[in-house]
Amino acid sequence: MNQKEPLSKRMKLSWREMPFAGIMFEPGSSVEYKTGDWRIERKPQIDGEKCIRCFICWIFCPDVSIKRVPKPYKKHIESVEVDYYHCKGCGICAAECPVNAIEMIEESTDVP
């Protein structure tokens, strides 16, 4: 079976081969499902300079799309990054950021 095929296609099986009782045996398989294309108009951009690494954006993200990554930057040992594959663009991160380090930018803008 081609592992690169999406799970939804791999699961188009005969009833004999379908997982027992509809059980989902792959924990967290939803990561395969792209919700990033739900975004309309705007997406968050984090300003690494302004960011104080308080992680408020991280804790409030309903879509687990703000990642804490072990990337040192100046005096910080960690950074935050946006997972655009899943981010739905709600803008909570930008609204809650205490130092206005997150801006909701035009969807068409390239993010470095």
């Binding site: 699961m11 188009k12 099986l13 005969s14 009833w15 379908m18 009782a21 509809g22 059980i23 989902m24 045996f25 924990p27």
Partner: peptide
């Protein structure tokens, strides 16, 4: 850590 009792839409329910 399996998920039991999820939702199966028309494309899967019938097979179960």
């Amino acid at each position: 850590p399996i998920s039991i009792g999820g939702m199966a839409l028309p494309e899967y329910y019938y097979e179960f």
